[in-house]
Structure formats: C-alpha cells, structure tokens
C-alpha cells in the first residue's frame, strides 16, 4: 500500500468523509477515490455503486481485477425532541445500526429515566450543534412541534446537507414552517428536501409506528444517496 494513500484514507475517515481505497490486485498499485470524484468507465460505475451500498469487494474492469475497500462514516441519527416517538425510535435505531442522539432543552422531557442508555442533551440545539456539527452522514428528525426548538436545527441540517431531514407536523403546520425557514435564509430547494409530514406513508398511528416510519425513511434516504439530484426520496 502506498503510504500516501494510507495517510489520505485515514485523514478522510477522521473527517467523517466517505472514501474508497482502490487496489489493482495484479500489480498492487492503489489510490484513494473520494465520494463525488469522477472515475470513468466500468470501474467508475462500480465505485459509484460501492459508495451507495457500502459493500467492499472485487470488480473486473478494463481487463484487470480491482479490490474496492469502502470506508463510509458511521451514519447516525440526531433527534430534536425527547418525546414519546423518540422513546420508541431510540432502541429501534440502535438495532438497525444508526446510533442516535437526542437533543431537547426541556429538562422535564430529556431525562435519563425516560431514555435509559441513550445519548441525551438537555440543551438547546444551538449549543449542542456548535460542538458536534451535523454532516452528510447524519440524519436529523425534528419532532418537538415547537418552532423555537426545531427551526434552528432544521436550518442547520439543510446547511450541513444531512442525508435525511424530517420534520413532524401536518401539511398545514409545515406550510407555516416553510415560511419561517425562508425567513431564516433557507432556499426553496433546500426546504424541498425536508420530509414533512415525517416518515414513510405506512399509515402509522401510534408513536411507535411513527418511529418505524421515520427509521424506514432514514434507511431509504441513506441507501439511495446520490440516486436523486436533490436527495429527496419518498
């Protein structure tokens, strides 16, 4: 392995950016491809697919065998609101492989008693996100119903290009939210990325069922990254 490739790969991993180490198994030469880099031909197609699936493996291209070792940052889920839905979502997300954190400044809601074993921040999103910024491998679900708590986080998620942004509330509630986000400086294209009403339409009724719908929509958004120019699915 080229020492420069190793250094580059580790730097990308530390920065929570996706990268693939491409090794020619015939001559041992390797290089790093970052997400979004243009690679032509069959190899390029295989690389694009590998970024989406996260699966490492060998590919035949241009009469050679290449090994693609895919390094994706751990996708994670940030939930704004320590509410009933979040209580169901926390264990489900953990099982599905999406570590979850909850932010809610209302100390009556954000208690370890209500959320045993969950990473909880009983603080304003403004304060938490300053230290732990959102990124492209983070999903954000805003479920407090309270603009004072949700709006800043939603705008931050759009600016950080989170792979999934969802907001709880009816279409009517969302229409008012759109006005407020425009006032905060969000663009119409950005706002179109918000999933509202939140969750895949499975007819969810209870808080736990809504949690299933949110988790399913998060997974769908993650697995279809790059397939839609706007990143908007379902």
């Amino acid at each position: 392995m080229d020492p420069y490739a190793l250094k580059t790969l580790n730097a990308e991993r530390r920065a929570r950016r996706a990268a693939i180490l491409v090794t020619d198994l015939g001559d041992g030469r390797d290089r790093i491809v970052r997400e979004g880099d243009q690679v032509a031909g069959d190899l390029g197609a295989a690389i694009a697919k590998a970024f989406r699936s996260g699966s490492s493996g060998s590919v035949e291209a241009e009469g050679r065998t290449f090994f693609l070792n895919v390094h994706l940052p751990q996708p994670r889920l940030v939930v704004i609101g320590a509410v009933h839905i979040s209580q169901a979502l926390a264990p489900m997300a953990r099982i599905a492989g999406y570590p979850l954190e909850i932010i809610d400044p209302r100390t009556a809601f954000a208690t370890p008693d209500r959320f045993p074993g969950v990473a909880l921040h009983a603080e304003w999103p403004e304060d938490v996100l300053k230290h732990q910024p959102l990124d492209n491998y983070t999903a954000l679900a805003a479920v407090t119903h309270d603009p004072k708590i949700d709006d800043f986080a939603l705008k931050a998620a759009l600016d950080a290009n989170c792979f999934y942004v969802g907001a709880l509330g009816s279409r009517k509630t969302h229409a008012k939210r759109v006005e407020r986000l425009l006032a905060l400086g969000a663009t119409a294209d950005q706002i179109a990325r918000i999933h509202a009403p939140i969750g895949l339409d499975i007819g969810a009724a209870s808080p736990a069922e809504i949690a299933v719908a949110v988790l399913a929509q998060t997974i769908y958004a993650f697995r279809s990254r790059g397939l839609d120019a706007k990143g908007a699915v379902a």
């Binding site: 020492p3 190793l6 250094k7 790969l9 580790n10 991993r13 530390r14 929570r16 699936s53 996260g54 699966s55 490492s56 070792n69 895919v70 390094h71 994706l72 940052p73 751990q74 996708p75 994670r76 492989g97 570590p99």
Partner: peptide, 22 residues
C-alpha cells in the same frame, strides 16, 4: 458493510495504528 465508528477508535483502529508505526 464496513462502517467507521462515529469517531474513530484510534487506539484500536488497524489503519490508524499502521500509520503510527510508519
């Protein structure tokens, strides 16, 4: 699927250790 942990566990990560050895 190879997921890197949220923040790399640098003390146990083989590729980080290899870079340190180098």
């Amino acid at each position: 699927m190879m997921n890197d942990s949220l923040y790399l566990d640098e003390a146990r990560d083989p590729l980080i250790i290899a870079e340190g050895w180098m």
